[in-house]
């Protein structure tokens, strides 16, 4: 079930591969408050390596906040988060962190005037020396790694096109390919397809979850559509007002639970 990415085997990944007893993500009472707003109430949960987890919940329920904390982009107000046994707070931002976790954001964040290939290869910047990085601007290094990733997400024919000229769906595929090249153990995605039309969204989500599954990566994503969540994810976590409503294997989540998550505004007491 667990295979390493064909593109690259990082020491960190291979070192901990045999050790599957350690959870990929261990959240211990982590929460986030802004002033007196509880964006995420203290929550504890465990995500095993290779799991695909979808966060569901209405707007403002805390999905982005929780994901950003898992990705090390946001510090929890309390509690702790461990990624594969390492305390997130101790991981050096940069290379060390980028081995553990990578995040795809809702908005497109490619460098618009570099080619798709170069954007994808930017996933390697944590490994490249400065000289190699600069040379790569004119003469892309490790081309094959980039092309393989582009092929995986189905846009290898766009390799030479500048990212700014691509459609939204293509740009999100490039962002997925960049993450594949970065090759973190854990992939976090915050509504990566919410700005795409439904057909395109389904395609990209399929590519993302399939790539994660193939490479044996842990995937945690916030998803708009409950259908997409049930199709592509093994486990669903429902969030509301910063708190967890349910946390179940996706085939056990009922329509009633989903309806309640989105529609019972104000009727639910805690």
């Amino acid at each position: 079930m667990k295979t390493t990415s064909p593109s690259k085997i990082s020491p960190a990944t291979s070192a901990s591969s045999p050790n599957s007893s350690r959870p990929a993500i261990l959240i211990d009472g982590a929460g986030k408050t802004y002033g007196d707003v509880e964006a995420v109430r203290p929550i504890s949960l465990t995500i095993e390596p290779g799991e695909t987890v979808a966060l569901l919940g209405p707007s403002g329920s805390g999905k982005t906040t929780l994901l950003s904390m898992m990705a090390g982009e946001l510090e929890p107000s309390q509690g702790s988060i461990h990624l594969r046994g390492k305390n997130l707070a101790d991981l050096h931002p940069g290379r060390e962190l980028s081995r553990e976790v990578g995040m795809i954001h809702q908005q497109y964040d490619l460098v618009p005037n570099l080619s798709s290939l170069q954007n994808v290869l930017a996933g390697r910047l944590g490994d490249w020396g400065l000289l190699k990085s600069v040379i790569s601007l004119v003469w892309p290094q490790d081309r094959q790694v980039g092309l393989t990733a582009l092929e995986q997400v189905g846009v290898v024919d766009r390799a030479r096109v500048r990212a700014g000229f691509l459609s939204g769906g293509e740009q999100q595929r490039i962002a997925v390919a960049r993450l594949l090249v970065q090759d973190p153990a854990i992939i976090i995605a915050d509504e990566p397809v919410s700005s795409l039309d439904p057909a395109r969204a389904e395609e990209v989500m399929g590519i993302l979850s399939e790539s994660a599954r193939q490479a044996g990566k842990t995937l945690v994503a916030s998803v708009h559509s409950t259908d997409v969540a049930r199709t592509y994810f093994g486990r669903l976590i429902g969030l509301r007002n910063g708190g967890r409503e349910f946390d179940l294997p996706s085939h056990l989540v009922t329509d009633d639970q989903l309806d309640a998550l989105y529609t019972l505004e104000g009727l639910q007491d805690e």
Binding site: G94, M103, V111, L114, Q118, L130, S136, R178
Partner: peptide, 28 residues
């Protein structure tokens, strides 16, 4: 800023962020 943050997320140091993100975007 968003593309630069993405590069940092991929593990790039400020110098690499400069060469691979800031300079290409400002160059034209």
């Amino acid at each position: 800023d968003a593309p630069l943050r993405a590069l940092r997320g991929a593990g790039a140091s400020e110098w690499r962020v400069f060469w691979f993100g800031r300079l290409p975007m400002a160059l034209p």
